[in-house]
């Protein structure tokens, strides 16, 4: 069983966005602006970037959130420099739907997560978001690696500082360990 946790201070910087998506934020913003008639929801912007330009779903979501921030008046630089994030991942020897139920089923969820975490935007068998009292955006994704093997990745995005990212890295690592105990599986 592998376990991996990462923090990427300023990882989704302007440079990374340009390198990984092939366009700068500014270019993405003008592109989205050119499609005002077709777009109105942030998720539509993300799916447009993802489907039409093959940018990964996570990065597309990130760009569309930056776009929303820009539209409400934040400057491009101000926002991108504030982007710290962390992620933790773990693979368990159980099926995807069982693992997913440890988030969607309230009593199972409470066995390893505090009550203020609530799943939303559930995309069954793929991903969901967690709303919480924490700052930032928590995105969870699942990847089946066989009928009885599944990887869970927790990303905590849009954090204000490197300290917050490091603190939350430790937090999510510990949470995945608690989940492992609850699931009662071996390494």
């Amino acid at each position: 069983m592998d376990r991996k946790s990462t923090t990427f201070p300023a990882h989704v910087s302007s440079d990374t966005i340009a390198r990984e998506s092939g366009k700068t934020l500014k270019q993405w913003f003008s592109l989205l602006e050119a499609h005002v008639d077709e777009l109105s929801l942030p998720e539509e912007c993300a799916s447009f970037i993802n489907k039409e330009y093959g940018v990964s779903a996570n990065l597309a979501t990130f760009i569309s959130l930056k776009y929303c921030a820009f539209l409400k008046g934040d400057s491009i630089e101000q926002e991108t420099d504030k982007c710290f994030y962390t992620s933790a991942t773990k693979t368990f020897p159980i099926g995807i739907h069982v693992l997913e139920s440890y988030l969607t089923d309230e009593s199972l969820r409470l066995s390893w997560l505090e009550p203020h975490f609530k799943p939303e935007l559930i995309n069954t068998g793929r991903n969901m978001r967690l709303s919480s009292r924490f700052n930032g955006l928590i995105q969870i994704s699942f990847k089946g690696k066989g009928p009885q093997k599944c990887q869970i990745t927790i990303q905590h995005l849009n954090l204000a500082s490197e300290e917050a990212a490091i603190e939350l890295q430790a937090f999510w690592k510990e949470k995945l360990n608690s989940l492992k105990k609850v699931l009662n599986v071996n390494d």
């Binding site: 989205l32 109105s40 929801l41 776009y67 929303c68 921030a69 539209l71 409400k72």
Partner: peptide, 14 residues
């Protein structure tokens, strides 16, 4: 990460 009123405004802004 957006306030209530910003959430309401976003579809119109986009």
């Amino acid at each position: 990460e957006f306030t209530a009123i910003e959430n309401v405004m976003i579809p119109a802004l986009i």
